[in-house]
């Protein structure tokens, strides 16, 4: 009972899901809120960046082309080639733009005055994941045949017969549904959790240093500010990692659809 009033912890309100509710920017267009605007800006940024980098390529790259080639090479060597091998050039446009788009959408969470990771609203990663799902189903049926695609997934060769009773339904649900659902949820939940944690610690700093400055509360506020800075640095790493992982898993799903697992 003694510590709580001194710290004024009973008046401190932790930020909740209200952080993710945005009113429409224009009257009458309910869909057009801040995340939607940011998504459009992100798409535009990717287009402008890629156009600036690769519209007039030079043999000795200069300026933006340097950065563009760095990003392209990273995507090709680290994301596409390990999974797709010689097919990777065909899928590079998709993987490269997806990597850049997801990364920029995530980066909005750490850009001052923007400060909202668009991917922390489930709709945005869900659309990407549904797109990947449609693509993977199409590719699988095209390359392995409508029956062969399901047969190769549900009945991987080389197992004792009785175990297929268990393997077939698990593989069916996991390969065609669960892993695509987690594909979206992974990106969404990481971004949401990161945004919430940073909001919590900056709220702690604001509350204990400005709203209610007390001798015992001040160290808590300083801790909150330090944690905000540290977690922002960590969040920058996570944002890049999640964009990488999203594109990586897309490459893996495409590869699984193109050729049966051995």
């Amino acid at each position: 009972m003694s510590a709580a009033p001194l710290l004024a912890a009973d008046e401190f309100q932790a930020p909740g899901l209200g952080l993710f509710d945005w009113p429409p920017l224009v009257e009458g267009a309910a869909w057009f809120n801040k995340p939607a605007l940011l998504a459009l800006v992100a798409a535009l940024l990717v287009i402008v960046f890629v156009y600036a980098a690769f519209s007039r390529p030079k043999l000795v790259p200069r300026g933006v082309q340097n950065i563009g080639e760095l990003a392209y090479e990273f995507t090709r060597e680290q994301i596409a080639r390990p999974f797709l091998g010689k097919d990777s050039d065909r899928w590079m446009p998709l993987l490269f733009s997806m990597f850049l788009f997801v990364w920029i959408m995530n980066l909005f969470g750490s850009i001052i005055f923007v400060q909202f990771p668009v991917m922390s609203r489930i709709g945005y990663p869900a659309v990407l994941a549904i797109g990947v799902w449609v693509l993977v189903m199409y590719l699988g049926i095209k390359h392995q045949g409508p029956i062969g695609f399901f047969k190769n997934v549900m009945f991987p060769p080389g197992l004792p017969g009785w175990i297929y009773v268990m393997v077939a339904p698990i593989e069916l649900v996991s390969t065609f549904f669960l892993r695509h659902i987690t594909h979206a949820i992974r990106l969404f939940a990481t971004m949401m959790a990161g945004h919430l944690i940073i909001a919590l610690f900056s709220e702690v700093g604001w509350h204990f240093l400005f709203v209610q400055l007390t001798p015992l509360g001040a160290p808590v506020g300083v801790l909150g500010v330090i944690m905000t800075i540290l977690l922002t640095a960590f969040e920058l790493f996570i944002q890049a990692l999640q964009a990488y992982v999203f594109a990586l898993l897309t490459a893996m799903f495409i590869n699984d659809a193109l050729r049966p697992a051995h």
């Binding site: 992974r186 969404f188 939940a189 949401m192 959790a193 992982v245 990586l248 898993l249």
Partner: peptide
């Protein structure tokens, strides 16, 4: 990293 993201997904589903 691939194994990490598969394990991490469970914790993230928990937080959601």
């Amino acid at each position: 990293i691939l194994g990490f993201v598969f394990a991490e997904a469970l914790a993230l589903i928990g937080i959601a």
